[in-house]
Every structure is written in C-alpha cells, then in structure tokens.
Write a protein that binds this DNA or RNA. Structure first.
Ligand SMILES: [Mn+2]
Ligand SMILES: [Mn+2]
Ligand SMILES: [Zn+2]
Ligand SMILES: [Zn+2]
Lengths: 146, 146
DNA sequence: TTTAATATGCAACAATGTAGCATTTACTTT
DNA sequence: AAAGTAAATGCTACATTGTTGCATATTAAA
C-alpha cells in the first residue's frame, strides 16, 4: 500500500529539509499526523511491516534531527513520536509543552496550547529545556469508564 | 566484596518490607544511597558484575513495587533508580518531585525540596500523578566548564 | 538517459528486559 | 543446633529495541 496521494503538505516538509520523497517517509508523516496523540515505535513498526526496521529507525532519527518530529518516552520507557510544531529547527527543538500519558490507553497527548508555569531551580542548576509529563486518565478513557 | 557492615538502616528497610537481607540487595541500597543523583541501570550492572543480571532486575522491580526506590528515564530512555522518600508505600508512590537531567554528565538529580507550581489541564484530562523533568547543566558541570 | 547522492534491505550485532526451572540461601521452627 | 520451608539466586533461553556495514535500488539532478 503506497502512501496516499494528496500529501502535498508532507512532500513540502521533506523538500524543505532536503530529504528525498520516499513512500516510507510519507507514510510515517501521514501516520503521525492522523492522530491527536503520539505514535509508539511498536505501533509504527506494526503498521510499516513491509519496511525494514532499520530503515524505519533511520527515518525517525532523520526526522528528529531535522526538527520534524520529537520523541517522548512514556511511562514504560517506550518511545513515542509526534510531529513538531512549526518553530522547531534542525537540531534545535522548541517542544516545551506538556505531555499527558494516560494510564489506561497509554496514549501520550501533546498539549501544546497550555500555559506552563515558571520554575525556579536551586542555585547552580541551569535549565536549557524541560519536559513536563502528567499521568492520568484521558478524556476518551474517562468517558468510557462511566 | 560483601556489603559493608554498619548498614542497619538498609537492613531495617528490607525487614520492614519482608524482604530477606541478602548481600546483593544491601549493596544495591547502599549504592543508591551513596550518591546525590540517581544511578543508571548500566552503572548498577557494571558494579554488580558478580550478581546475575536477571537477579538484579528482580531486585530493582521488587524494590520499586515495595516503594523503596523509584525509576526515572533519562534523556536517552535509560532507566535510572533512586531511593524514595519515606512517604512512599507499596504500589503507591509519592515521588512528585522535579528531575533534573544534566546534558553533560547525564546525571539525574531528584530535587525533592522544590515547590512545584499547580497545573490546570484542559477539560477532560484527570491528573493522577506527574513528573517534571528539566534538562540543563548541573552545578558540578557548570563549574567545570568555567 | 546518464549520473551521483541518498535511501533502502539485509544481516549481524549489542543492549535491555523477562521467565522457567534447578539449586542455594535466609530465616523459622523444632 | 538441626531440620524444614519459603524466598532468592544463577543459569539459560528468549523477546524487544536499537545500531551499523555493506550491497543494491531509487530519487532527483544534469
Ligand atoms: Mn509533544
Ligand atoms: Mn526522583
Ligand atoms: Zn486514555
Ligand atoms: Zn552534570
């Protein structure tokens, strides 16, 4: 199953970063874009069975370096991937948003539009970046259990 | 090299949780207590070469379940372990403190005594727990690079 | 259509983590 | 102190995750 057409947006992204437009890459992009939560590495691998595992890792690593996607580890230490917002650059991410990890479905949601409070660290610690992850019950699972 | 004597404190911990006082367990406890930052699984494994890897994992998992230690994943997704504060219980941790992950030495510091700001999540998300991890330069590495 | 740079597939490997089962050890009971 | 029992360990085998070298195939430019 080749990547569906009508993916100008994803082709542009690849173009911009001087990555060749291959089927596997377009499929990764459209898969990540299709959900409002991050996609785990095992899920990606399951869907992309026809692509070599090593190649999939190379795609993910390349995308991450270019600032196209970011990786977040869930509760279990499993890697999850999500598209970055527009302001991420090569080797300089700006993904300082909250990650919500549902303990039931295990999904990781990127809550981009949330105001985050300032932190004051102890003397000597210099903050470069931070990641805030909250575990709990997501809206979908909250409804289900009623 | 057997665990050094004079470890009443660690023996008490094992007693309290009905875990037998074995050399390997006492060594894990004293190793974690000896540093002001978490210990990575690879580091533990390196020091405890004479103990079977499977056994080491069982020790760590048992300690975690009992609320003696907690696990935190660093930037690279590597597991790091640190002693819990006294108020953690079996299967009910209270480790809501900030983790500072130095990008240079890679150490993970548990900043227990830090006041953390409240979060207000979007509609529908119910928070059970959270973990805040900041990456940056730790005091030790900050001094070195001057 | 030829070419050159890149991406992929394949195979081999390292690291991390789990589980079954035989043996040993720590602690309790006599 | 000796015997008995539950728990812990060592060993082996295995699954999953991730990386790398190299030959082949593909993309995009000339
Ligand atoms: Mn995110
Ligand atoms: Mn901690
Ligand atoms: Zn959920
Ligand atoms: Zn440091």
């Amino acid at each position: 199953m080749p990547a569906k057409k009508n993916n100008y947006r994803f082709e542009e992204i690849l173009d911009k970063h001087q990555l060749k437009k291959t089927d596997a890459r377009l499929r990764v992009l459209s898969m990540l874009a299709s959900k409002n939560f991050a996609t785990s590495q095992p899920d990606l691998e399951e869907v992309m069975v026809d692509v070599d595992r090593g190649t999939l890792y190379r795609i993910l690593n390349a995308f991450e370096e270019k600032g196209i996607i970011h990786k977040v580890f869930d509760l279990n230490g499993t890697a999850n991937y999500a598209l970055c917002n527009s302001d991420c650059e090569e080797n300089h991410h700006h993904d300082e948003h909250l990650h919500f990890n549902c303990v039931q479905c295990n999904n990781v949601y990127c809550l981009n539009d949330l105001d985050l409070p300032d932190l004051n660290l102890p003397e000597g610690f210099k903050s470069l970046n931070f990641s805030l992850s909250v575990t709990g019950i997501c809206p979908k699972c909250g409804k289900k259990s009623k």
